[in-house]
Simulated assay, not measured.
Amino acid sequence: MMKSLTRSGKMICIAAITALAGLILYIVTSTTGYLAGSALDPLPIIFSVVAILMACGLLIASSKLNPLLNDLLVVASTVLIIVSFAIFVLARVRLAADIYFIPVNYPKAEEVALNISAAGFVCYLISIIAMIIAAFSGKIKHN
């Protein structure tokens, strides 16, 4: 299947994989360590899963879909990944503020949670960039 994909298709694969990695890091940092007792926002999980499913659907059925629908799915998936990233970052602002702006007595677990979250941020950013590249590329599969 990978041989039939164009650059756009490969970018969608990269975006789906890195969005999944960012989602896993979001769940891990939200449910373990310093943030173990805090409330988990389900929106990034839902949006990321839907975006990943859309990306997988594009890879599987893009040749059978209307080109306009392909474009709409790419844009919708990109928007969902961006919203997931934004919610993830906003949920970690308090950690960054405690560590970088009030660096007095914070627990080491707080810094670990922020550092792992930063890896999740990078995964989501790679996913966003890959989806933007895919949006401006040609077809997803070779004929």
Rank of each mutant, 00 (worst) to 15 (best):
A55N: 06
S84K: 03
A55E: 06
G57H: 08
V74P: 01
D98E: 11
V50P: 05
I82T: 11
Y106V: 09
F47Q: 01
S77V: 02
L68H: 11
V79S: 13
L69Q: 14
L69G: 06
V93S: 04
L72N: 07
A91W: 00
V83E: 03
N105S: 10
F101W: 13
S84F: 06
L95E: 15
Y100R: 13
A76Q: 00
S84P: 08
A51K: 01
D98L: 09
N105Y: 04
I87L: 10
I82M: 14
N70W: 12
F47S: 06
V93E: 05
M54A: 14
S48E: 03
L69T: 11
L58K: 12
L80P: 04
S48M: 05
V79I: 14
V75K: 07
D71K: 15
F47W: 00
V49D: 05
I46R: 02
V75S: 05
L59W: 02
V50N: 04
F101V: 12
S62L: 06
K108A: 13
M54I: 14
I81N: 08
P42Q: 07
S48N: 05
L58V: 09
A55P: 00
N66K: 11
I99Y: 14
D98Y: 10
I60T: 15
Y100F: 13
A97I: 03
D71H: 13
V83W: 00
L68E: 12
S63R: 15
P67T: 08
A55K: 00
P67Q: 13
D71N: 12
A61H: 10
R94I: 05
L43R: 03
F88C: 05
S62C: 13
I99G: 13
S84V: 04
P44G: 02
S84T: 08
I87M: 04
S77H: 02
V74Y: 03
D41T: 06
R94Q: 10
I81A: 12
L69C: 12
I102V: 15
P67V: 07
A91S: 14
L68D: 14
P67C: 06
K64V: 01
V104C: 07
L90P: 03
C56P: 05
C56R: 08
P67W: 11
S84L: 01
P107A: 09
V50A: 09
L73Q: 01
F101Q: 13
I60F: 14
V75I: 12
F47P: 01
L53V: 15
N105P: 01
L58E: 07
V89R: 10
L53H: 13
I45H: 06
L80V: 03
V93M: 04
S48R: 03
I81R: 11
F47K: 00
A39W: 05
V79G: 14
L72Q: 12
A39I: 10
A39P: 04
Y106Q: 12
A51R: 00
L40A: 06
L90Q: 11
A76H: 03
N70K: 15
M54P: 10
I46Y: 15
N105F: 02
V93A: 00
A96K: 07
I87Y: 04
K108D: 15
P67F: 13
I102T: 13
V49Y: 04
A76E: 02
L69W: 10
N105R: 04
S48C: 02
V79E: 06
L95A: 11
P44M: 07
A61R: 06
Y106I: 08
S63K: 15
I82L: 11
V74F: 04
A61F: 15
L58I: 12
L40R: 09
L43S: 11
N70M: 11
L65C: 06
T78V: 13
L72G: 08
